[in-house]
Every structure is written in C-alpha cells, then in structure tokens.
C-alpha cells in the first residue's frame, strides 16, 4: 500500500524536523505522495546496491524538502532508520538540504535550479551509451523562476531525451507568498508543451493517478515527460496545509503530537 508508505514518510518527516528544530516541513509534506509512489512502484532501485549501474536516477532539485526523501530511503532500507535521528545534528550526513553523502541520493542540492540541468546531463549519457535507465527530477514550482530550468527544458527537448521525467510540485506557494503574487507561471502546461515536452497534469496526492502517469513514461517517443503534480503545501496536517509559515516553522512538541494524531486518524 503506497498510502501506508506515504503515511510513514509523513510521520518520520514530522519527527525529524521537530527534533532538529528545522524548517521546510510544508515542502516535504507536499511531495510525500509523489515520493511514495516513485520509491514503491516506479523507480528501479536496489537498496543493497545504491550505485547499481542500471538503476534509475532520482534527483530532488528542491533540496530543502530532503526529510521526505531521507525517510523514504530509510523505509526502503537504503540505510538504518535509526540514522534519521541524526538529521540536522552536528557531523551528520543527513544535512538539512539533500546530500549525496547519504546512500541512495544522487546529487546534493540546496540552491534552486541545479537539479534539472544535472539530470539532463545524466539522461544524455544514458542515450549515448544506449542504457535503459531513466532520470527522474523533482522540482518545486517556485523553482521555475530560475532561468537555468528553462535552459535545461529547451536542451532536453532539442536532444529528444525521452528517458528524462520531470515532476513539478505545483503547490502554488513559494517562499513569501503565492506563486500568483510572485511570478505567475500560468499557463504552465502550455508553456512546457511549447518548449517541446510531453506534459500531463495529475492530483499530486492521488496515488493511482501518480502511478499511472509515472509508470507509463515516456508518454511520447522522442519527447521528455513533464508531470505537473497539483499539490497542497503541508498536505495531511490540517493546521499546516496551504500556510506559507510552514515553509519556515518547526513544530513544537504539542503540534507534533497533534500532527501525528491526525496522521494516525487518517485513512490514507
């Protein structure tokens, strides 16, 4: 059940940020369902061989949402779950932006706009050596402000990288306020199609929709695939949903208890 996996990721993520007094829980909860489907159903990865040459490559470009990836990797036994307790602590490999020092993590990010060009380079190599592994890159919506992403979008389409899948976590909030009030992205799907990508839109919390889309790439031969995942920042915790402040705040003990209770009571 990928929904149970997602629930576990949410629970571990909440505990990690609370323990470390860290930020970005809203961003992590936003991508949790995407990650659950990817790591349970889609990605060809082997926890016993994190560097297996034939593995699919997953890159989290919005590196600040790393707790959800760390939790997913630990749940998939890439490393002992106990290590999650070191998150954000002195000398831990589990730093507060995703780190390639963690087994299963391909690339460190933190500055936005780096993941897609890096993934493009990997996908280009896969084409050149005629390998059948794929590259999945998860971006934030606010990150689409970065010009480097649009450079990479153009390059990937020009080079027919249909082994490249980009997912945009479109929760409509960025660091200070809404996307709409900052730099509006609409009409996003049309823009991306005009850049030469095959584009689909799904409810980013609907596991069936996510699985159906991500398991059937490429959607068009010769075109890279772009999934716009409509999401809710802070998804699953009532007092965090759609609140910019949870880009920054860390839950206190009481809020953590309430959040975990909500998770426990939820069906998903």
């Amino acid at each position: 059940m990928t929904e149970e996996f997602a629930k576990k990721i949410r629970s571990l993520s909440l505990q990690m940020v609370t323990r470390a007094k860290a930020s970005h829980i809203g961003s992590a909860l936003s991508i949790t369902d995407i990650l659950a489907v990817l790591y349970a159903k889609v990605l060809r990865v082997d926890p016993t061989q994190p560097d297996m040459p034939s593995r699919d490559r997953f890159i989290l470009s919005k590196g600040h949402a790393c707790v959800a990836v760390y939790a997913a990797l630990a749940e998939r036994d890439f490393f002992p779950a106990l290590e999650l307790e070191t998150y954000g602590q002195d000398h831990s490999n589990l730093m507060n932006h995703i780190s390639h020092k963690v087994p299963g993590v391909e690339f460190s990010t933190g500055a936005l706009g780096h993941g897609l060009p890096f993934g493009v380079g990997k996908a280009l190599v896969a084409k050149k050596i005629q390998a059948d592994w794929r590259v999945f890159v998860l971006l934030s919506d606010g990150e689409m402000d970065e010009g480097s992403n649009w450079e990479a979008l153009m390059f990937a389409a020009h080079h027919n990288l249909d082994n490249l899948v980009t997912i945009i976590d479109y929760n409509k909030l960025q660091s200070l306020t809404t996307i709409q009030k900052t730099l509006g992205l609409e009409p996003l799907a049309d823009k991306l199609r005009a850049f030469g990508w095959s584009v689909k839109e799904v409810d980013g919390h609907n596991h069936d929709q996510l699985n159906q889309s991500l398991s059937s790439v490429p959607w068009e031969l010769g075109k890279p695939s772009l999934l716009i995942a409509h999401t809710v920042k802070g998804k699953g915790i009532s007092f965090m949903e759609n609140k910019v402040e949870w880009h920054y705040r860390s839950p206190n003990a009481e809020q953590l208890a309430q959040a975990l209770a909500e998770l426990e009571a939820s069906n998903a």
Partner: peptide
C-alpha cells in the same frame, strides 16, 4: 557523438557537464 553545442545557456551547460561527469 562526443561534441555538444549547449547553446548560449551557460548555467545549463555547466550543470549538464556535471551530470555527464557523474556518469563517467
């Protein structure tokens, strides 16, 4: 096959170079 003109797009050029380098 070993030559790429990345266009006038230096950020992507360097990022994709790093991505290729990460694959050998």
């Amino acid at each position: 096959e070993q030559f790429i003109n990345a266009g006038v797009a230096e950020q992507n050029m360097m990022g994709l170079a790093a991505g290729m380098a990460s694959e050998g």
